[in-house]
């Protein structure tokens, strides 16, 4: 294949690539009140999605943070435990960090709207987020076991180091992998030019 052919193939290959997935962040306006909403349902890794449908109780921990001069500022945190019922093909909510959501889950959408979503409404925060170069860090852990369970397993490993077999775990490099993690560094979408939008302070 000559050079022109290679370039032609590269241009064709690039044009056939799937379009970049939509940002999980979007602006919403309700009765003059603006909010920045996040939903990770389309951003989950294949392994995270597989765990959610495993038929076993699955724990999720979502954090949204914003970098500041003094470090990372935590803006939102959410925790859920759910279990997918194979036979009835629905999600059961076992635990939710915030008590004010009495919804019953049925579908994956119900689950993602409750556990994989965040809404930022504080006007000062929204203004700060529009500073030039500002971004959000989103971190989602999905695990089949709770952190308490992971702590117990670690204790059992320690128990196995009786005096005589002390070198048994000397070759262990790190901790057990108990969770599937996803970290996203997200730039804010452009704010629709509307009245009442929370513009950054000059």
């Amino acid at each position: 294949m000559n050079t022109f052919g290679v370039w032609l193939f590269a241009v064709f290959a690039l044009s056939m690539q799937a379009p970049a997935s939509a940002s999980p962040l979007s602006w919403h306006e309700d009765k003059g009140q603006w909010s920045l909403e996040l939903n990770l349902s389309d951003t989950l890794t294949a392994q995270q999605k597989k765990l959610l449908f495993s038929g076993f109780s699955t724990f999720s921990h979502l954090e949204v943070r914003m970098p500041e001069a003094s470090g990372m500022r935590l803006l939102f945190v959410s925790e859920c435990s759910i279990q997918y019922d194979l036979w009835e093909e629905k999600f059961d909510l076992l635990y939710f960090l915030e008590a004010q959501h009495p919804e019953k889950l049925r579908s994956f959408k119900d689950y993602s709207d409750l556990c994989l979503a965040a809404a930022l409404r504080n006007a000062d925060t929204l203004r700060a987020l529009q500073s030039p170069g500002q971004h959000l860090e989103v971190h989602l852990d999905i695990a089949q076991v709770s952190s308490e369970f992971a702590k117990n397993v670690r204790e059992w490993l320690i128990q196995q180091q009786s005096g005589m077999m002390r070198g048994l775990f000397a070759h262990m490099l790190g901790e057990l992998k108990m969770k599937e993690s996803l970290t996203l560094d997200l730039s804010l979408p452009a704010l629709p030019a509307q009245r009442g939008a929370p513009h950054a302070k000059p």
Binding site: K50, S54, L86, Q144, V145, F149, V153, W156, M178
Partner: peptide
């Protein structure tokens, strides 16, 4: 799951139904 993780042979043990 705990028995298999406690062998120290695996980094993770996941169960699917």
């Amino acid at each position: 799951q705990t028995q298999l993780l406690g062998t120290g042979l695996f980094r993770s043990v996941r169960l699917y139904l």
